[in-house]
Amino acid sequence: MGSLPELTTGRLFSAWQTDLPALLLVALLGALYCWGVLRLRRRGEHWPTARAAAFALLGLGTLIVATMSALAVYDHVLFWPAAVQNILLDLVAPLGLALGDPLGLALRALPERGAGRVQRVVTGRLMRLFTFPLVSTALVLVTELTVYFTPYFETALRVDWLHDVMYLHLLLAGCLFVVPVLTREEVLPAWCTHPVRAALVFLDGVIDAVPGIVVMTHGTLIAGSWYLHHAPSWSPDVQRDQQLGGGAMISIAELVALPFLLAILAQWARTERAETVALDRRLEAELVPAAPAVEGAGEEADRVRPWWETENSAVAQRIQQQR
């Protein structure tokens, strides 16, 4: 690790390594998603291309970048690549996966029995507890603080399998908040309307910046004994490296909050339009002209007329009678 070449802009884009557990997870998720889309198409049903693209590019793509790019190559010798890795897994990848709506795809593509099982798991008490907005937000915050301010992170740097467990831990913690807010409304409380969800996303963006602020301003080195021992000669001061990592965490957290909020607002607008269309159709059905009472074969059917027509007609009749 100490013999790694200096991390330049070119190596940031060209240095890659294979992480077998992460690669297997990406392959499994991608294969299941493709199976669901193909199953729907065979039945003649449509699945939005934008959702599939978000799942593949922003979701799975972020997983690959976080676990196999230069960030993974250099995370054992520099703190800031590890910090960027973790925030990508905790915030960006869950957003991409949620925009792809894999649970919605599963409920449509699976046979009735399988879809019922998925639905029971998603709406079960335990899942409702973990996806309750305030609980899931707290879990994300506690997860990030636990990673950096307990021996968890430094131990993960020493033990490869625990490093992969940490990856999965961060990903799942992020998904517990993002997925229900964007796609699985049935697991949220009734009061969690779109305006409330927009407020929660704004609040979550503020909270997500807290770990970065703490990391950047913390006087004690995080995993200091590890990075002091493994820092290459070309690396910045370890304290400076930690400050860079904290700053990157804050920047990414704030950048992610904006598209997340925009996705909620777009979803809110679509829901409002759908409700408006449904209301218009119901009103049209309720205001269908009543069937006329037939008094004779040649009699013209009465129809519902606006008040100004009937009022003018009544006035005209009174004038005619006075004459």
Results as ranks from 00 to 15, higher is better:
P211E: 07
P236Q: 02
R240L: 14
I213G: 13
S233T: 15
F260N: 01
A263I: 00
L265P: 03
V214H: 00
T217A: 14
T220E: 12
Y227C: 09
M216Y: 02
L255Q: 10
Q242V: 04
L221W: 00
Q239H: 09
P232I: 06
I264A: 00
T220D: 09
L258D: 05
A266S: 13
G245R: 00
Q243H: 12
E254M: 15
T220N: 07
A248H: 11
I213L: 15
T217R: 10
Q242W: 04
F260E: 01
Q242G: 05
P211D: 05
G246C: 02
L265W: 04
V215D: 00
L228D: 13
H218N: 12
L221V: 02
T220Y: 02
G245A: 05
P259G: 06
L261K: 03
S233A: 15
T217L: 15
W234N: 09
M216L: 09
P259R: 05
V214R: 02
Q239Y: 02
A253T: 10
I252F: 05
P236V: 10
A266C: 08
H218L: 03
I264H: 02
L261W: 05
P232R: 11
Q239M: 04
L265Q: 06
H229D: 15
G212C: 08
M216H: 02
T220K: 06
L262H: 01
R240T: 14
A223V: 03
A253V: 10
P211N: 10
L221K: 03
V214Y: 04
R240E: 11
